[in-house]
């Protein structure tokens, strides 16, 4: 399981607000796709997915405040591998 964490946005920024999630729980996400948009004073900031996988939990509601270092979502990268391997098997099946 991989955590999505609010990164260090710089010296003046300790808190930010969740503008909106680009995905819902259960969605498949690719590594580096923007997962969530944060709003700070005068800026929006998109956090990319640290790994590919299935989003298992969004821990914070849209509109809520979050702090730097806070875990805001979880991605199951093993689930991604499982899903891929089952797709592979299906492909193999059709080859026979």
């Amino acid at each position: 399981m991989v955590e999505v964490v609010v990164p260090d946005l710089g010296e003046d920024v300790e808190k930010a607000k969740i503008s909106f999630w680009h995905y819902e729980e259960g969605d498949k996400v690719e590594k580096n796709d923007d997962v969530v948009e944060l709003t700070t004073d005068k800026a929006t900031f998109n956090i990319p997915a640290p790994e590919s996988g299935i989003i298992t939990e969004l821990c914070v509601e849209e509109g809520e405040e979050v702090e730097v270092g806070e875990v805001i979502a979880f991605i199951d990268e093993e689930n991604e591998e499982l899903e891929l391997s089952s797709e592979d098997e299906e492909e193999e099946d059709t080859n026979f």
Binding site: D8, L9, G10, E11, D12, V13, T40, D41, K42, A43, F45
Partner: peptide, 9 residues
């Protein structure tokens, strides 16, 4: 450059 949102603004 410098990964700092506030400094950029």
């Amino acid at each position: 450059w410098k990964k700092d949102v506030g400094l950029f603004i």
